[in-house]
Amino acid sequence: MMEVKRVTKSYGESIVVNNVSLPIEKGKLTACIGPNGAGKSTLLEMVSRLIPQDTGDIYIDGNEVKTWKRGDFAKRLSVLKQTNQMNVRLTVRELVSFGRFPYTKGRLNAHCHEMINESLEYLGLTALQERYIDTLSGGQLQRALIAMVLCQDTDYILLDEPLNNLDMSFGVQMMKTLRRLVDELGKTVITIVHDINFAASYADNIVAMKDGKLFASGTVDEMINKTVLDDLYDMDVKIIESNGTKYCLYYTTN
């Protein structure tokens, strides 16, 4: 179970996340949407304990995140951060194997190698595994980092814009991968997505944030409608339906 209760974070005068309570369903794919600067990343950082919240509580499996030992917490929840630039000379496989650190502290066993191979396979990186990460394209590095997170084998996976740097085809593959993580492996995935149509097509639930506050939340069906999205983005969004999935058209509105 994951529960976020009245969480607030401010930097100086500006309140970045304001009294947010979130319902997160276990074993579901939750997409977090909202305009730039809505506080999505900050909320995600607090839930994944990269930064402390000012007030409020975040519970993972019954315990407040601050009471978890970091080493144990890393076996429950993994996080992919936005914008990733790495200066260190590592191969893809070496990078992915860091995901096993919480379990083995650097001594890889047979099970680890299995997990590493599976993660590489899942992200289509097997052929690239001996490449150095400084020779990869942005999208390949992004996939390698997600493979590392996957290799961490946690119940909860939090992703900050995993579709960054990915082309259409890998974007679709990424969302399908996340879907499989939920459907096949029973993971709880929370991801920040900017392309609302990806959220509409693949997520179970959608959480919308605006100006540091929770704007609305619900199932995809409830959330993808004109009244919600128009207000959320202050735009005129058109919703069409094709093969039972709703899509938003917003590219040419003014």
Partner: peptide, 13 residues
């Protein structure tokens, strides 16, 4: 692990 930077080091426990 510290090579990966602060955020990932935190994330890895």
């Amino acid at each position: 692990v510290l090579h990966l930077g602060r955020a990932y080091a935190l994330g890895l426990g």
